[in-house]
Design a protein around this nucleic acid. Structure first.
Length: 118
RNA sequence: CCAGACGGCCGGACGACCGCUGGUGGGGGCAACCCUGCUGGAGGAAAGUCCGGGCUCCACGGGAAUACGGUGCCGGCUAACGGCCGGCGAGGGUGACCUCAGGGAAAGUGCCACAGAAAACAAACCGCCGGUGCUACUUCGGUCGCGCAGGCAAGGGUGAAACGGUGCGGUAAGAGCGCACCGCGCCCCUGGCAACAGGGGCGGCAGGGUAAACCCCACCGGGAGCAAGACCGAAUAGGGGUGGCCGGCGAGGCGCCAGAUAAUGGCGUUGACGCAGGGGCAUUUCCGCCCCGUCGCCCGGGUUGGUCGCGUGAGGCGCGCAGCAAUGCGCGUCCCAGAGGAAUGGUCGUCCCGGGGUUGCGCAAGCAAUGUCGGACAGAACCCGGCUUACAGGCCGUCUGGCAAU
C-alpha cells in the first residue's frame, strides 16, 4: 500500500491509523475507476487525501502508475474546486490504469456526490 | 546469401502544458513558511535476497580440539567470494564451440529395485569335460540314455552393472595358464609452477557401482543487522535522588529526662502500612487488587515524533603502459538520485519501430498511401562486488559449416 506526499491544494494522510479510521467509520463509494472512502471532520481545514493500491492490482510498477494517475486526477480536481473538512481515501483498482483520464476525473466527481461530500 | 556459435551494446525519440522532490541563488516574513530563478532526479536487471565484503552494535585473553554450516581438478586475479580469467581431465557436436557437485570407494558402515543361479570373504541355472556304475544298441572302435563322485566357467540366458576386454596359443574341457595389443596398478625418465601429458620398465589383475547415503581428508566461517546505531525529545502518568514546607491515629525501635544502673512514666524522633481517609484498575453497586502529603530542582529510562547515519565511492569516463586474459598501475577529467503512506511523474501531440487490414502500381519479389493495434521485463529504500531469474524489439564485432562466385 502506498500514498502520495504533498499534493499542492491538499495535505495527505500520513499514518496507518488515519487510513484505518477512514475505512472503518467513513462512507464508501465504488465507481468504475476507483473506490472512494470519505470521513467528515469537525473543522474547516482543507481536505486530506490518502491513496491505497493493494498488491492485488499488480507489481510495484503497476501500483505506482495507478496511484500516480489517481493523485494527478485528484490534484487537478481539487485545485479547481477545493474541499474542506473531510478525509478522503482513494483506492485504485484494475480499471484505474486503463481508464481514460477525463473519465477518471468524472469518476471521482461522481463518487464524491455518492458519499455526499460535493 | 543461408544456417549456426560466441562476445559486447542499446532498452523508443522530441516537444507543449501542469506537477513532485534534492541542491543552490534572489526576494518577503520575528518565525513557521511563502514567491521566484538555475540545476540534478530509477535499472540492466533497481527484481530474487542466493553468496562475498564495507559500515554499525553486541560478544570475545591466546592456541588447539570437537560439534555445526559451507567449499572441493590446477594456476592466477580480487578487499573477499560458492565469483572471474587461463589451463587440465571427462563427455557431446562435422565444426565454431558447449556441458560437468571434477578430492577420497586398497578406513569403516549402509544400499544395489526388477530380472537373474548368483549383486560381492563369492557362487553355478542351462551348460562343457574326462572318469566311473547300470541299461540299450553296435560295424566291437564306440554311441545314446539315466545316475555317481569330480574338473571348468568358454558359450547361453538376466541385468545399468556379473570378479578385466579382443585375438592367438594352450587344454579332457577350461582358466592370465602363456603371448600380443588395449585397459588397470606400481616404479623410473622427460616436459610443465601445477593439474596433467608423453615415453620406458615391472606386475597376471589385486581394487564392481554408489560419496547428489552416512562418512573420511583439506581449507574457510563469532552473532545480528540501517527497524544496525547515534543524538534531540514534548503532553500525561510513573521511577530514583535532593532541599523547603506541612502532616490523622499508631504497635514497635532509637535518643533524652525522671526513677533505684529497675519496673514504669514523660518528651522528642522515627515509623510496620495495621486502622481511618484519599486515589487508580473506562463508568455505577458490591467484592478484590495496587498506590500514598505537597512544591522546587536534578538524574535515569522512554512511546509517538524529529535530526543524523545518507552518498567522494573497492566511483564513472577517456588515454597510455604491463599481462593471452581476468586484472593491475599511471595520467587526465567529472561529481552523477536520495524518498520516507515512500519524489523521480500526469495529460496531450508529432515522429520512430513491429504486426496484420484496405487501396494503388507491379508477372512477382516488393514499393507507396491510408487508417488501426501493439512497443517487453520491471520501481532505488545504507552502500559496493558477484550469482541467479525475467525480458518486446534492435545494433555491432569475431568465428564455424554449407551454397554460389573469383
Amino acid at each position: 500500500m502506498t500514498a502520495a506526499s504533498k499534493i499542492s491544494p491538499c495535505p495527505t494522510l500520513q499514518r496507518r491509523a488515519e487510513f484505518l479510521r477512514v475505512a472503518a467509520k467513513g462512507r464508501k463509494a465504488p465507481v468504475h475507476g476507483l473506490v472512494l472512502q470519505a470521513l467528515p471532520r469537525d473543522d474547516t481545514a482543507p481536505a486530506r487525501l490518502g491513496f491505497t493500491v493493494t498488491k492485488k492490482v499488480g507489481n510495484a510498477v503497476v501500483r505506482n502508475r495507478t496511484r500516480r494517475r489517481l493523485k494527478e486526477a485528484a490534484r487537478l480536481l481539487f485545485a479547481a474546486q477545493p474541499l474542506t473538512g473531510v478525509d478522503l481515501v482513494l483506492i485504485g483498482r484494475d480499471a484505474t490504469r486503463g481508464r481514460n483520464f477525463l473519465d477518471l476525473q468524472d469518476d471521482i466527481r461522481r463518487a464524491l456526490r455518492k458519499v455526499g461530500v460535493a
